[in-house]
Amino acid sequence: MGQFTRNTILVAFVAMSVSTAYAFDLDIRGEYRTGSEQYRSRAKIANQWSNNVGASLEAGVFNGQGSLNKFKSDFNEVEGWYLYKPNTAVAFIPGADWTWNTSGSTIKPFLRVNWAFAPTWRADVRARYDHNNYDSVTKWHMPEGQSYSSSNDQWQFDFWLTKWIGDKTAIEYNYAWNKKDDSQFVYNNGHTTQYLHNLKTSYKYMPTVVPYFEVGYLGHTADLNNDQDEWRLRIGTVFTF
């Protein structure tokens, strides 16, 4: 995708959100990964319209390794979804993400279901399939001098459990499980499956300002030769306009 096309999408989405929506969210977040010592940041704008259609635009930045000395585009993502609520407790949310970076683009269709099973509790599940529109190359378990090329698609299954404490504080636990669609590819742990644990706490400082903090365990670092555990620390704020 050309730079002009990307910029057109960004400008059109922001203009649409500001001009037609009654409110939209701006999520600004910073991140640090302990094992690989990487810094990242992200900005995301999202809106849910009155017709139950929602969309978001996300831009990720790589800020350096070992120190904050870079400002390099990491990824960009557009997401769209539709919210269907057969009753007040259950919602079905089909949608898709479209992500692109220097390697190419990825389409990620998903179905998410949430259930408010108690006044201050909610459970969510999501199944998503990530299809890369480009090939990746691996030498994993290949004969000397040979490599293997494929789209390296994967499945991701998520479970969230959210608890509200009063009318300002929320605690959210997320478990994610990934599986390679092609067994020739492996994750950083040397296997075709991996998992993630993430705990998030948010506090409604003001009706339009919600800071949050996350800590996640990602398994091993992004280098197969580095066996350090990777912990991910995030701090951010959601602003509603």
Results as ranks from 00 to 15, higher is better:
N189A: 03
N178Y: 15
G216F: 02
N178A: 13
H141E: 11
K85N: 06
K168Q: 13
F241K: 08
G80R: 00
F117L: 02
L199Q: 10
L57E: 00
P109Y: 05
R40M: 05
K108R: 15
Q3R: 13
R42C: 04
F185I: 05
N101D: 15
R112F: 06
S136G: 14
Q154Y: 06
W98E: 02
R128T: 07
G236F: 01
A43R: 04
S36V: 06
Y195C: 04
T192S: 13
S183I: 07
A170C: 09
S67A: 14
N76K: 11
Q65K: 11
V61H: 08
T5L: 15
G236S: 03
A91S: 15
N101A: 06
T8I: 07
V90R: 10
E58I: 04
I9A: 04
R29V: 10
I171W: 09
F239H: 06
R128F: 00
N132F: 07
L161W: 09
I28P: 03
T221I: 07
A222S: 12
S19W: 05
Q154E: 11
F110V: 00
L68Q: 09
D27G: 02
T120S: 14
D27F: 00
Q184W: 08
Y175W: 13
Y22T: 15
V137G: 02
R6M: 07
G30T: 09
A89R: 14
R33I: 02
Q48G: 10
L83N: 14
N188H: 14
A12K: 09
V61Y: 11
F213W: 09
R42K: 11
I9T: 03
T193F: 03
D25F: 02
D97F: 15
N51W: 09
Y134A: 05
G80Y: 01
I28E: 05
R33N: 12
P211K: 07
Y134M: 08
W140P: 02
V18I: 12
F24C: 06
P86K: 08
D74K: 02
K70P: 01
F159E: 07
G216K: 03
L161Y: 03
N7V: 02
P207I: 06
E79Y: 04
V113Y: 04
Q146Y: 11
Q65V: 04
T138Q: 12
W164C: 09
Q194H: 09
N152W: 00
A170G: 09
L57C: 02
I45F: 07
